[in-house]
Amino acid sequence: MTLFLEQMLNGVQFGVMLFLLAAGLTLVFGIMGVINLAHGSLYMIGAYAGTWIAGETGSFLLGILGAFAAAALAGVAIEYLVVRRLYGRDHLDQVLATFGLILIFNQTITLIFGRQPLFVSVPAILDGSIEIVPGLEYPLYRLTIIVVGLLVAAGLYLLINKTRIGMLVRAGSTNRDMVRALGVDIRLLYTLVFGLGALLAGLAGFMAGPIMAVQVGMGEQILITTFVVVVVGGVGSIRGAFFASLFLGVVDTGLRAYLPGLLRHVLAGSEADALGAGISSMGIYLIMAIVLLIRPKGLFMPNS
């Protein structure tokens, strides 16, 4: 039972990380209609900048600020220099341009930091693990990620639902042209939204630093899963992205943890493991395919 609980926590933690990335991606996609493949690069930039600063200064807090600043700056720069020219274009043009950005960012980081991964340790106050229920020790740092993720989700909820900017964002994701016609400075709104998405990606990247290796290409590894989240949750919906992230995080973790064991009841050991590993890595894509069949607009969007 404690093992099951631990796996659920792992799933939620993975989901929360996905949410931080998916939130920005879904906003950019939903409001501006831009497919931004370089979103993973912002995650990487946040991780590198934050980790490097934290390593140089020895301060985790300065690291967070550095990650925020670098990712947001890079995000605004991408929007201003590249993406702004692509709003009216075809999705294929956007994919090409932002894919080009991935290559440029990866090479730039390689030039600056080299190919060896960077390394930051968990800050002392978050190191170690705590006993949540008797018999279940859970790493404090991972617990912190869950808490931070939920706080960000709550903050986004307030921002989107209770503020004027949020109202414009919602309006923009429903009917872009009408918002523009009403005299809202849509360019500024776009830049703000893009910057916000970048900020969240940077935060996710920095928080991933102590757990995962900070390395070139780390963004692409998680980007695909993030796109799945956006599609399942419904393009443009923060609420959808939140629930889809947690759902897919838990499903992915659950499949990895339990499917090989279940298959072992019907198949020989090694075959069950190989098959289980195969199916569990397909799991979230299967879910996406099913969602696309049944509710093409996403699980959490009203079907109009």
């Binding site: 093992l3 933690q13 993975f14 995962m212 998680i222 973790t253």
Partner: peptide, 21 residues
């Protein structure tokens, strides 16, 4: 116990929980 992970995996929490168990 025997687990196949993914070549592009970034989080091993689920596997590590099984190792412990």
């Amino acid at each position: 116990g025997e687990i196949y992970t993914k070549l592009d995996q970034t989080d091993f929490a689920a596997e590590l929980a099984q190792v412990r168990a």
